[in-house]
Design a protein around this nucleic acid. Sequence first.
DNA 1: CTCATAACGATACGATGCGTAGCGATGTCG
DNA 2: CGACATCGCTACGCATCGTATCGTTATGAG
Lengths: 215, 215
Amino acid sequence: MSFPRTKIISMSNGQNKSNPPHVQNRGRKATQAILDASLELAEQSGLDSVTVEGIADYAGVAKTTIYRRWPNVSSILMDAVLSQVNAAAPIEEQSTLRETFAVSMKLLTKLYAGRNGKILRALIGRAQVEESLREAIETRWVEPRRKLARELLRRGMRRGEIRPDLDTDVVLDLLYGAIYHRLLVPYKNGKLNERFVEVLLDAVFGGITVRPGTS
Amino acid sequence: MSFPRTKIISMSNGQNKSNPPHVQNRGRKATQAILDASLELAEQSGLDSVTVEGIADYAGVAKTTIYRRWPNVSSILMDAVLSQVNAAAPIEEQSTLRETFAVSMKLLTKLYAGRNGKILRALIGRAQVEESLREAIETRWVEPRRKLARELLRRGMRRGEIRPDLDTDVVLDLLYGAIYHRLLVPYKNGKLNERFVEVLLDAVFGGITVRPGTS
DNA sequence: CTCATAACGATACGATGCGTAGCGATGTCG
DNA sequence: CGACATCGCTACGCATCGTATCGTTATGAG
């Protein structure tokens, strides 16, 4: 039984388990060097100027070795970033729904302010013209988080914290959409910080219309 | 009085008035052919595969002629799209605040579903790694619309339609952020249509928390 | 109508990166 | 201690970039 000449580790799904068992220490070291190099170079000079040849030089690896694993730069960085980022902004249930999202959204703003966030933002940008990257972001980044967040919203509905007739995806678009809007669509004074998250939650959970209880 | 050898028409601001008067019919035809070609090619095969040489061929124009006007492909498409798009999704006051944004947001979803919308989306994507493009989008697309929308929100506050203590930018991030979120950050079943706009407005203007008046 | 000149078209150039192919060298596993 | 998968290395054709050069053409002032 032989394995296909060209094997793409991931990008298609998150499972590397079916790798050829022959890939051992030597291969792993090269793989890790490539991932590290891609992050380093992307941070230094921006995703657009990261090239396969640049990564190869920096990682001390042959260009062909890279092409044996990934089809392009985007997929390398996707793997490199996701391995670190998925744990950086978890969604964990707190005492109230509002507190749950307050914590999550503040972690998210911190993530995007950091090293990997800059790269992740660039990847979302490139995903607008690269269909396979768009799919990868959906499958490996957005959907897993959405799935969890939807469930938390439903529990909040059952506890009577929010209206039970709402479309959970619409609520998530409200909360996280505002953050991504500031991140991706530029305008003056569109700061992305913890204060913004608080003001935002006030508006969403307090409602934007005038109501009796509001002094 | 002579003009600089290399003159970039726009991208920096929206004013072409200070063009050399010597640029007349011949030059204008070439300019228009370049703009048309860039749109055509971008729609055909995606922004990423649009090249200066490709535009030159398609427009029947020398490559040098293009470089005399624009520094790169992004700025060509920015000019080409904005000349058509700014009028396609205006923000005009309706009888109520909710109706004002309902109309505006539905026009926006239609815009992004169309030919120029696809390109505009790709430009926003590339703006994540191209600083000058980011500035151009902010100055020539987002800020003018924000300025108008903020004013409309303030008038709605004075009329008592929404809470007067809100940050207008946060409200706009809620409304339009949700749309751009669906547009740019992919997830399953994230359709961008008129129905979404209605459901979204229900959630924002109706509030997401449980309130007495809601059956 | 004539002519100076600004702008254009065409061509050539070095540089860079892509993705592939061929091949000898090396580590790894049975 | 072989057999073989994988690696590093070099070389290749191709596309595009952005610039320079130069002959050609349209245009408007006199």
